[in-house]
């Protein structure tokens, strides 16, 4: 394992078996991870993107010692996740989030007290640390309320508080803002950003592209159990053909017009989509080679043309990669 790697995964495969039928049971095998390779630098926020069912949660569970891989190896902090669980578990924080995962009939402070004991936080430090994390996640005023009275956002904060309670060296956040209202989601992202200042390595899974863009300097895209891309955000943009995107809309385009656009210098991709009576052409390109004026010139026969230029978003990159993998 490289010196600065917090996570190193090689050829990781995970197959789930389920049984169907009552008398004659048929075994159904689902390959959730199909040879994943991944490396995450220590002290960074690493984003793991992917559609539903891509294998993100499966990978997180393997890395956090909650699931065994079928084959391949995974090391966290230089230790094997299948053989060195005793060493790893106190150093790992896991936030699976959601409505479940907490004792809802007791209050937040008691939830944290219980897990502080399970993690062996010294009794002399326990109360101070609980107060500290409750303040950090902004739950101090609700600390003595039953968790069942909490909103979804408050529960999410409590999940995070539990995940960081024992000062883990590495934190796994599985879709931390899913289902949250915009304000709670923004607060959660702010909290995640602040954690990196403590020197914690964070692996965050999400399918919100803007979230990945905002939080993760480096990310991997997981699709159908495979890593289809692993790079920095600028690296991923150039990988899909450019950091600029131009979208042109009109009532249909001729093939020759599309070919003309493809022939423009610096244009790497032209994709066409139908929107009711209108067609949208999406051009991926590098900055400074071809501009809006060139595209307008190529499509001058359309008086109803609307055109806009923007930076290629992580969502564009993600969709390109996932479509590429699917095809």
């Amino acid at each position: 394992m490289s010196d600065d790697a917090a996570i190193e995964v090689r050829d990781l495969v995970r197959v789930f078996e389920s049984r169907k039928g009552f008398l004659f049971r048929e075994v159904v095998r689902t390959e959730a991870l199909k040879g994943v390779n991944l490396r995450v630098r220590a002290g960074s926020i690493f984003g793991l993107l992917g559609p539903n069912g891509a294998g993100k949660t499966t990978l997180v569970k393997i890395l956090s010692t909650l699931l065994l891989p079928t084959s391949g190896t995974a090391q966290v902090l230089g230790h094997d996740v299948t053989r060195e669980t005793d060493w790893l578990r106190p150093r790992i924080g896991l936030v699976l989030g959601g409505e479940r995962g907490l004792y809802s009939r007791i209050n937040a402070r008691e939830n944290l007290r219980y897990f502080a004991d399970l993690y062996g936080i010294p009794v002399s430090e326990r109360e101070r640390r609980i107060t500290e994390v409750l303040e950090r996640v902004d739950l101090s005023s609700a600390a003595d309320r039953r968790v069942e009275e909490y909103s979804r956002g408050m529960k999410q904060k409590l999940h995070i508080a539990r995940g960081i309670l024992h000062r883990p060296a590495i934190l796994f956040l599985d879709e931390p803002t899913i289902g949250l209202d915009p304000k709670s989601a923004r607060e959660t992202r702010k909290l995640v950003r602040s954690l990196i200042q403590d020197g914690v390595t964070i692996l965050l899974t999400t399918h919100y592209m803007f979230e990945a863009e905002e939080l993760c300097p480096e990310l991997a895209v997981l699709s159908r159990g495979r890593v289809v891309a692993h790079d920095t955000i600028p690296g991923l943009r150039s990988r899909v053909g450019g950091d600029r995107t131009i979208e042109a809309e009109a009532y249909g385009f001729e093939d020759r017009e599309v070919d003309a656009l493809r022939a423009l210098p610096g244009v790497s991709k032209v994709a066409s989509e139908e929107y009711g009576p209108r067609t949208r052409l999406t051009l991926r390109m590098r900055t400074g080679v071809t501009g809006v004026e060139h595209v307008k010139a190529a499509l001058r026969e359309h008086p109803e043309l609307t055109i806009r230029e923007r930076r290629t978003s992580v969502e564009d990159v993600y969709l390109d990669l996932v479509e590429e993998e699917a095809s």
Partner: peptide, 18 residues
């Protein structure tokens, strides 16, 4: 049912003592 089995098993404490 509560979903607390995963975080409890993931903690360093052996579940038998829980």
């Amino acid at each position: 049912v509560f979903g607390t089995l995963e975080p409890t098993i993931q903690s360093p404490s052996p579940y038998l003592y829980v």
